[in-house]
């Protein structure tokens, strides 16, 4: 389990670096998917299986479509991968930053350091499920507002992307 978690954490950092180092949108989306998936694994490994499932279904299910479409719109004949000169400099700088930061904070690290503390043992429901339930029972209005925000987002996206000939963001 420890090795798996270490692998996941390394995968998360590498995925983030892969996004942040400005490769072509194809590869950036790939890096984002990798880091999101690995992040779900970390959440599940540390006791947040419900949140992990939600994140996996919604984030990777919904956002992947958006990534696919935006990558298709921003298609280029010679995409810049992580080996390209403009990208590899960023990769190296970010990796060095991660190593330096890791060296500085090495002392505060121990195994099982961020397992969820509350609602861990002797509870019928786990921390993440009961947390979601808490939020919507104490703040029921939040649910209404969230629904309104989703509706608003729909209108915003429709209004921004409406019109076939008026697209400014796409390269066609």
């Amino acid at each position: 389990m420890t090795y798996l978690m270490s692998l996941f954490l390394i995968g998360l950092i590498v995925g983030m670096v892969a996004v942040a180092s400005n490769p072509a949108p194809y590869f950036a989306a790939l890096g984002l998917v990798v880091s999101a998936g690995v992040g779900c694994g970390i959440l599940a490994g540390h006791g947040g299986s419900f949140l992990s499932l939600i994140l996996f279904l919604i984030y990777l299910g919904g956002m992947l479509v958006v990534f696919a479409y935006s990558a298709a719109l921003a298609a280029e004949p010679y995409p810049e991968a992580w080996g390209g000169w403009s990208v590899i400099v960023y990769m190296l700088v970010y990796m060095t930053g991660v190593v330096v930061a890791g060296a500085c904070m090495w002392g505060g690290w121990y195994e099982g350091f961020w397992v969820m503390e509350s609602f861990k043992e002797f509870m019928v429901v786990r921390g993440d499920t009961s947390g979601a339930a808490f939020m919507y029972s104490f703040g029921g209005g939040m649910l209404v507002i969230s629904a309104w925000v989703l509706l608003l987002t729909l209108f915003v996206v429709l209004e921004l992307t409406r019109g076939l000939s008026r697209g400014t963001l796409r390269a066609v």
Binding site: G139, M142, I145, S146, V149, L152, T153, V156, L160
Partner: peptide
Amino acid sequence: LAWMGLEINTLAILP
């Protein structure tokens, strides 16, 4: 909730 308010503000002004 404050964060949600800020996000609604940003989203609503974009169009």
